[in-house]
Amino acid sequence: MTQTILLTSFDIWMSHHQTNSSDELLEKVSQVSGIPHHLHFLRKLPVDFQEAPKEAIAKINELQPDLVVCCGMAESRQKLTVEKQARCGKEAIVTPLNLPPLIHDLKLTEISEDAGQFVCEALYYAVLTHLHPHPKKRDALFVHVPILTPTNFPPILDDFLHLLHRLTQSNPQ
């Protein structure tokens, strides 16, 4: 069954960065042919606590996607990390997705319980909170992307594409 998927990335946020690895990854995903789903991209979200969630939720409301995958850069990480939860103050909201089967046997992907306490986590929290009460079950996931190099980019892209495929199969919950 063809699904509508919204993929988001961030713009550059530090002066020493020339690109944002989350956006580099989505640029490459947009060039992959044969993905049997309707991919929609909301790229280069502003690194802003209010604007990023506002733009993402507006796009979610417009598209009504089956799945939302938000991506952000994690400069200090070495692998793709799928975020189990997002926090806002003392509150936390957990993705309803069953993450261990999603990442099973992926070479450069692991589960994280710390979405970073920055704009990435604010976006994830806002998206999960927005989707939670909807009668149409829609899932969301946040994926942190490490700095991409010529060596790690191919296996990270491969893991991400496998992750997308698994997310769109019968829900592994």
Rank of each mutant, 00 (worst) to 15 (best):
P172S: 01
S33F: 01
F10H: 13
V69L: 00
I12R: 15
N98L: 02
L63Y: 07
Q64W: 12
F142N: 02
T4E: 11
P100N: 03
V29C: 09
R138Y: 05
P46N: 12
D11P: 02
L148G: 14
T95P: 05
P154H: 11
P100F: 02
A86D: 10
C88K: 01
A86I: 04
L25D: 09
H132P: 08
Q50A: 13
V29I: 01
Y125E: 08
A92V: 02
T2W: 00
C71N: 11
L39N: 07
H16D: 11
P46R: 12
Q31F: 08
S22K: 10
Y124C: 06
D139G: 01
I57K: 09
H104N: 08
K90S: 08
Y125G: 11
N20A: 14
E113M: 07
D114H: 15
E83C: 09
H134F: 06
T4Y: 05
F142K: 03
D159M: 13
K90G: 07
S170T: 06
F41R: 15
H130Q: 13
K54I: 04
G89H: 09
L63N: 10
L148R: 05
K44G: 13
R87Q: 09
G89K: 14
I93Q: 03
E113Y: 05
M73S: 11
Y125N: 10
I156F: 11
E83V: 07
T95I: 02
E24Q: 15
L106D: 08
R166S: 00
T95G: 06
N98R: 13
K137C: 13
I93Y: 04
K84M: 13
A86N: 10
L42D: 14
N171L: 12
I35M: 01
L131I: 00
I103G: 00
Y124Q: 11
D139Q: 08
E121Q: 12
P155S: 13
T81P: 01
Q169H: 00
L108E: 14
I156S: 04
Q117R: 12
K44S: 14
L26D: 02
S112G: 06
A115L: 10
F153V: 03
N152M: 15
P172Y: 02
P133F: 04
L148S: 09
G72T: 08
V32W: 08
P172K: 05
V143P: 01
T8W: 07
S76L: 01
L157M: 11
V119L: 04
I111V: 02
P36Q: 04
P53S: 13
N152V: 10
E55H: 15
G89E: 13
E51D: 15
G116D: 13
I111E: 10
L42M: 10
L42S: 01
F10S: 11
R166G: 01
L131K: 10
R138K: 14
T2L: 02
T2Q: 00
K28D: 06
T8Y: 07
R87A: 04
H132W: 12
V82Y: 06
T168L: 06
L106R: 05
G34L: 07
G89F: 10
V69Y: 08
A56Y: 06
P101Y: 03
M73L: 15
V145N: 08
